[in-house]
């Protein structure tokens, strides 16, 4: 697959704080790419450099084959950005906000009205177009933010923690629409998040820690490398689990045993068929991967 973003040896410091340190990675066209990390890991700094909001201290950023140092304006046309918090004008209507932003990309008149019509239908905005942005709910506001980012048909959609603070239903709706756009318009999505379930759905994940890459790969590769498998046993006495001589944790309705990999899990089941009557084997979760890769829990703080 063609590489649409290529970043090599990127670095950025704010005084003594090294926000991004020698970061190198690439993103393939059409994939959902996730940056996973705690606050201050360097996710937003990297995005700000890609969008031309911040100057890098060193390294190279290429988007769609163009160097950001030489073609910043052209690159900006390729990007649609959804910020962590809405930065549009709360006093103005949704329509006025979108019209102003579209004009920045020379999208005006009939072309703007047509594009707005399409996106308003897709994101169910028709009823709220004339309402002031400040009067909208968090979910409605977020949908407007995504529409603003997509107005000029970018080839890359950058989502900087887009679903933070949203209720699960709205989060699901937003992701449903973005997934459709990816399929229909071959949109590349660059996501930063600290939601594990969002990262688990990505095609490729980079875990950032203190401005450096702590781990990278597909969710499956990461799980295989950084987390073993788990066998969950139900309807069993604790003494029988202890007899297996494996580390385990008590969970609701059963016990969770950690094993190195699926082969070990299978061997354990085959050796103890009487115990394994009600059980399931699962891969580790992204939480486990993150913990293993960084030594930190995503909810914050070191373990």
């Amino acid at each position: 697959m063609e590489k649409i973003i290529q970043i090599s040896h990127l670095s950025k410091s704010f005084g003594e704080v090294k926000a991004v340190q020698d970061l190198s990675f690439c993103v393939k066209k059409g994939e959902l790419f996730a940056f996973l990390g705690l606050n201050g890991a360097g996710k937003s700094t990297t995005i700000s450099i890609m969008c031309g909001q911040l100057q890098k201290d060193g390294g190279r950023v290429e988007i769609n084959g163009k160097n950001i140092d030489e073609n910043a304006l052209e690159i900006k046309r390729e990007l649609g950005v959804v910020f962590q918090n809405s930065v549009m004008d709360k006093a103005l209507s949704v329509y006025d906000n979108l019209k102003t932003r579209a004009a920045l990309y020379n999208l005006t008149g009939k072309a703007f009205e047509e594009r707005l019509q399409t996106l308003a239908e897709l994101f169910d905005l028709k009823e709220i177009l004339k309402r002031p942005l400040g009067k909208l709910s968090g979910g409605q506001c977020r949908r407007v933010d995504v529409v603003r980012a997509l107005l000029h048909k970018p080839s890359i959609l950058i989502l900087d923690e887009p679903t933070t603070g949203l209720d699960p239903q709205t989060r699901k709706t937003v992701w449903g629409i973005i997934d459709n756009l990816r399929k229909e318009e071959n949109l590349t999505v660059f996501l930063t998040t600290h939601y594990m379930e969002e990262a688990a759905d990505a095609d490729y994940v980079i875990i950032l820690d203190s401005g450096k890459i702590a781990a990278q790969g597909t969710p499956l590769e990461l799980k295989n490398e950084y987390s073993g498998d788990f066998i969950t046993l139900y309807n069993i006495a604790e003494e029988k689990v202890q007899a297996l001589q494996k580390s385990y944790e008590k969970i609701k309705d059963g016990y969770r045993i950690a094993v190195a990999n699926t082969a070990e899990a299978t061997a354990l089941v085959v050796q103890n068929p009487d115990l394994f009557t009600d059980y399931e084997i699962t891969k580790g979760k992204m939480d486990d991967v993150f913990l293993a890769a960084t030594g930190k829990k995503l909810t914050g703080g070191e373990v």
Binding site: C51, G52, E74, V81, V87, M88
Partner: peptide, 12 residues
């Protein structure tokens, strides 16, 4: 309010 960021990311 960082509203300016929305203009800075545009090709303006």
């Amino acid at each position: 309010t960082k509203a300016r960021n929305d203009f800075v990311i545009a090709p303006v």
